[in-house]
Amino acid sequence: MELSPGLFQPVARQGSEAEAIVRPSVTYGQDAWRRLKQNRAAMFGLVLIIVLLILAAVGPYFVPYSYSDQDLDRTGEGPSWQHLLGTDLHGRDQLVRILYGARISLTVGIFASLINLTIGVVYGGISGLAGGKVDNIMMRIVDVLYSIPLLLYVILFMVIFQPGLQNVLLAIGLVYWTDMARIVRGQILSLREQDYVLAARTLGARQWRILMRHLVPNALGPIIVTLTLKIPEAIFTEAWLSFVGLGVSAPMASWGSLASDALSSIRSYPHLLLFPALAISITMLAFNFLGDGLRDALDPRQRR
C-alpha cells in the first residue's frame, strides 16, 4: 500500500463539536438506582417494604373486623377461612391486629429515624465543620452518652413520661442519633478539605451554605444507608418497649405488645406468638437487606 502525505490530513473539526458530550446525562441517583436493581436481596427487601406499607395503610379496610371486635365463639383459634391468622384469647381477629400493629411499628420506625436524622446531621455537621476544640467537646459528649446502653435512656424517658405512641417516638428519636452524628462528622471531616470546599470559601460562602450545599449532599450516601438501618432498629426498640409494657398502651396493639400478650399462653396457643414475631422478623430483614444494598449502590467507588 502506498502511503502519501495526503492520507495524513487532519480531520476538520469545529470547535464546539469537539466539546460536545455524546453520552446521555446520567445523574448520581439514576446510577445508584441501576446498581440497586442488580442486587436481588435489596430489591426483595424493597418490594417487601412497599407491600408492608400498602398493607399497613389500606389492609385493615379489607378485613371485616375491627381490632376490638370479639368473636367469643372462636377464642384462641388457629388460622381458618374466617380468621386468616386465627384469633386471640379474647376472640379478636389476629390479622387485623397485626395490620394495625404494622401501622404503629412503621410510624415509629420512620418518624423516630427522621428525628435521628435531623439531630444527627446538624450535630455531626457542626462538630465536623467546626473542628478543633468544639469538635473534641461535642464528640466526647457523644462518647459519654454512648458509654451506657442507649436503651437505658429510652427506658428512663418512658418511666418519667406517660407511655404512648408519641412518647415512644420521641424517646427513640431523641436518643438514637449518636450513630448518625458520628457518621456525618466523619464524612464532613474528610470532605471539608476538598478543593471545591476551598473554592466555596474563597468565594466567600458562609459556613451554613458550605455545610448544606457542599458537605451534606456529598455525604448523602452514608446518611441514607444509616437511615435505612436505623429504621429496623427503631422498630425493634419499640417492639421491645411494648413487650415489657413501656410502649403503646391497650387497646392499641403493636407487634411488641401482641407478642407480649401471647407469651403467657405460649404452650397452648403458640400461633399467637408466631405471627407477630414473624412480622417483626420479616420487617427487620427487609430493611436490613435494603440498607446493605443501598450501601453498595451509593458507594461512589463502585461507580463505573
Binding site: Y196, L198, G204, L220, P300
Partner: peptide, 24 residues
C-alpha cells in the same frame, strides 16, 4: 471588607477532579 476583597481575588485550583462539587 473581606467579602469585597473576595470578589476581586479568585483562585483556580490544581485538581480539576476535586475542585468541582460532584453533586452540583
Amino acid at each position: 471588607g473581606m467579602q469585597e476583597i473576595r470578589r476581586k481575588i479568585q483562585m483556580i485550583f490544581q485538581d480539576p477532579y476535586s475542585s468541582l462539587n460532584p453533586r452540583m
